[in-house]
Every structure is written in C-alpha cells, then in structure tokens.
Computed example of a mutant assay.
Amino acid sequence: MRMRRILSLALAAATLAGVSAVGAVSAGAASSPNISRDDCTAAGGQIVSRPYAGEACALPDGTTQAIT
C-alpha cells in the first residue's frame, strides 16, 4: 500500500512537470514570434540593431520581436 502511494505521487509529480514544461515552451513561442521588416514598419515599429543578436522590431506597445 505504501509503495503504491509513493509511486502514484511520483507519477503525478512527473506528469505535472511535463505539463509545465510544455506550457512554458508554448508560451515562449507564442510570446516571441518573428516578424518581417515590412510588417514591422507597417505596424508602426522601428528597426533596431541589437549587439550580437541581429536586428529586432521595436513596436509602439513596448515589445520587441526578432526580424526574420
């Protein structure tokens, strides 16, 4: 009985960790999409150069997105 409880807790923790990792990856991908130079200027953004990271689009709402 005790072993079954320990195994079920370990399985629940592993499942929760897996769901958290998938959620974090999805959120990261959704929050930082790439944008083209034309789309950036059309949205009212400015092209900025980042040292060692290439160019990015600085949008009026304060967010930056990598340029493809």
Rank of each mutant, 00 (worst) to 15 (best):
Q46H: 08
T15H: 08
R4I: 15
A53I: 04
A10D: 06
L9A: 12
Q46V: 14
G62D: 01
A53S: 14
D39N: 13
P33G: 02
S36Q: 09
A27E: 08
S32C: 04
A17Y: 08
L59A: 07
A53H: 08
S31M: 08
M3P: 02
L11V: 15
M3I: 12
T15S: 12
A13G: 10
G23H: 04
I6C: 06
A24C: 01
G44N: 14
A17M: 12
R2N: 13
V48Y: 01
T68R: 13
T68Y: 04
S31D: 05
Y52G: 01
A66T: 03
A13Q: 09
G28D: 05
A21S: 12
L16T: 13
C57P: 05
A24M: 01
M1C: 09
D61Y: 02
S31Q: 11
T68P: 05
A14M: 09
S31C: 00
R5E: 14
A13P: 07
A24L: 02
P33T: 01
A21Y: 12
G44Y: 13
A27S: 08
A29H: 14
I47M: 09
I47L: 12
R5G: 11
L11P: 10
G54N: 00
I47G: 09
A30F: 15
R2C: 11
P60M: 03
M1N: 11
S26W: 15
T68H: 15
S26C: 13
S8M: 15
I67F: 00
A21K: 09
M3E: 10
L9H: 05
V22P: 04
S49V: 08
R50Y: 13
L16R: 03
Y52F: 13
A27P: 02
D61H: 04
T68K: 09
G54A: 06
A12W: 05
L9I: 15
D39R: 04
L16W: 14
Q65P: 00
